[in-house]
């Protein structure tokens, strides 16, 4: 099977939350008590965040003020990075990227170190204290392998979510970008399998700013910078040591002369 992707066109989303409900139904996620979102820009967002029971939710974002106020609805979930930061960080290969697109979690390998939670640039994975497992959107691999769309995609009444090949999704996003629209996931973290198109900049929707490097490149650059700082520090310290040695020698010879 070819690598699958989902194109999320925020211009089409009406905020019906069918995807939220479909996800809970298919993945057997329970209801949880939610809290009022304290951010006035996001107060209609419910639930406010991911949890072991919430793989996806729709952010209800108020953009602009007064007359120009408009709503933007943005479904969020695991973006299923092409090169996932969580899978790179995972010491056990419990998290892996499959050829078909989903980043899947294999509980039997997991040690519960929590590094994936800190490593994900999008803040997605959660640890379920009850079942002692990492929980996040799965991209419904069991449905994909049967030729079905993920539960949320099938439930979407406006085709804001569409399943297609990764190539096609990237091409469509690039075309949208060329038309002056904003995209998310085309470049972020080396590209993801869920790609967004929007008329509103993603910074205004509270999406984290993530650089274009894939994790391996990010780590390598970090290591290079660590090494450069080490080399500069060593040279500076060596220089100071030689200087202080020379000075004390000079002082000694001066003392010897007098």
């Amino acid at each position: 099977m070819m690598a699958k992707a989902v194109l999320v066109d925020l211009r089409r989303c009406i905020g019906c939350r069918s995807c939220q409900v479909a996800c809970k139904r298919w993945n057997d996620r329970g209801a949880t008590a939610t809290k009022h979102n304290p951010d006035p820009k996001l107060e209609w967002t419910n639930p406010s965040d991911f949890s072991p029971q919430t793989y996806t939710y729709v952010r209800f974002v108020k953009v602009g003020k007064g007359e120009s106020l408009k709503w933007v609805f943005a479904k969020v979930q695991c973006n299923h990075c092409i090169e996932p930061g969580c899978a790179t960080a995972c010491p056990t290969t419990a998290l892996i990227k499959t050829k078909e697109g989903p980043v899947i979690y294999r509980k039997e390998l997991c040690i519960g170190c929590g590094y994936c939670i800190n490593a994900c640039p999008f803040g997605v994975p959660r640890f379920d204290e009850e079942n002692k497992a990492i929980e996040k959107c799965t991209f419904c691999p069991e449905r994909l392998s049967e030729g079905l769309e993920p539960a949320c995609v099938q439930a979407c009444p406006t085709d804001a979510l569409t399943l297609m090949s990764l190539e096609e999704a990237r091409r469509k996003a690039a075309e949208a970008e060329a038309k002056g629209l904003y995209t998310y996931g085309l470049h972020e973290a080396g590209g993801t399998s869920w790609i967004y198109i929007s008329e509103t900049p993603f910074t205004e929707l509270g999406f984290p700013k993530v650089g274009p490097e894939a994790p391996a490149a990010f780590n390598l650059r970090m290591l290079e910078n660590i090494s450069i700082i080490g080399a500069v520090g060593l040279i500076a310290m060596g220089g100071l040591w030689l200087y202080s040695k020379r000075r004390s020698k000079l002082e000694e010879s001066k003392r010897g002369e007098s």
Binding site: P91, A94, I111, C113
Partner: peptide
């Protein structure tokens, strides 16, 4: 390790993803 109580020997899995995972 949050899975220590359910899978005490899983800790050995931390050696697997060498050298990709820094951990």
């Amino acid at each position: 390790l949050k899975r220590l109580t359910v899978a005490p020997f899983s800790v050995l899995n931390a050696y697997i993803h060498f050298p990709v995972s820094i951990m």
